[in-house]
Simulated assay, not measured.
Amino acid sequence: MSNTIIRTDFNFPGQKSVYKGKVRDVYSLENDKLVMIATDRLSAFDVVMPKGIPYKGQILNQIATKMMEKTSDIVPNWLEATPDPNVAVGYKCEPFKVEMVIRGYLSGHAAREYKAGKRELCGVAMPEGMKENDKFPEPIITPATKAEQGDHDEDISREELLRRNIVSESDYTKLEDYTRKLFQRGTEIAAKQDLILVDTKYEFGKTPDGTIVLIDEIHTPDSSRYFYKKCYEERQEKGEAQKQLSKEFVRQWLISNGFQGKEGQKVPEMSDEYITSVSDRYIELYENITGEKFEKADVSNIEKRIEKNVVNFLK
């Protein structure tokens, strides 16, 4: 197996604190600078899997970087530079406590809720008579916020967000507008590569001067779902599962092995062979969505490589 990075323990010049998320570790430095490291950790159902996926961090970081560059005319973003394949450096801002999820199709979580008989998600109506992976008449925004207890994402309606004062109405109106425009751009980028951007999530923050900026990742396989365009119609007509490029194939594998992140459930053993197949799927998505060949970074000593590149950049 290739070397992977699943935990970090750096001490960069001017470092003040570190926050370890499910997939990314964020180092806060002086002068409101952030060093975000995309690890090879894999999270599904809000649980981090015990083994890392080779090149996953590099893939997420490089797709997110390319997509931020391609959308910076719509909304400014936090990114300053990518001094290493796994690293993004940018400026600190106050994150909104809401994830802006937008869905063009009845897939994943929305399909599971629909199958359970629900016809409303986050206060938004879903038409009757749809089948899994059908296109919505218009994309729907279904926000999520962190639950009061634990780290689970919780569906929330626009009305509830405003009632609980999680975000102001004027800011939320802007977030919705940016979300729709970003999704439209993402859809156009995907279409050029014969892909369908099915659904995705965006996260935003506010700079000290009050500017709303795009933060975290964008249009990656961890935050988005893609279908292959050329076989979409045919598969829908035949009632076949869509071939997709996203983390959903991992979720489906976990479900088929009796794991959905519920209490008492054990993460199934991931063989080296399975982990290699997941890595290959991530590389496939990178090449499909960017239209470029994936260049594997040197993974003989990832920690040393990252440290050297970041320290040199900070000089």
Rank of each mutant, 00 (worst) to 15 (best):
D177P: 06
S223C: 05
R24K: 14
L121H: 04
I289R: 09
D46M: 07
S2N: 11
I283N: 08
N288F: 07
E203F: 08
K230D: 15
K206P: 13
I302Y: 03
F227N: 09
L121A: 06
S277V: 03
E120Q: 13
N301H: 11
V35T: 10
E30L: 14
R251N: 11
G258N: 14
A147P: 02
E203Y: 12
F313L: 07
Y228P: 00
R251P: 15
M1H: 06
A110T: 03
R225N: 06
E287P: 01
A111K: 00
K238V: 10
A116P: 02
D280A: 15
A191R: 11
P83A: 10
I189Q: 14
R225T: 08
Y274F: 09
Q149T: 14
C93W: 07
A125D: 07
W78Y: 12
E240S: 05
N288W: 05
S279Q: 08
M100Y: 00
L195I: 04
M67I: 03
E307T: 08
K293I: 08
D32M: 02
N86Y: 15
K229P: 07
K66N: 07
E128R: 12
D153I: 04
Y172V: 09
A241M: 01
S168M: 09
I74W: 06
S300L: 10
Y286L: 01
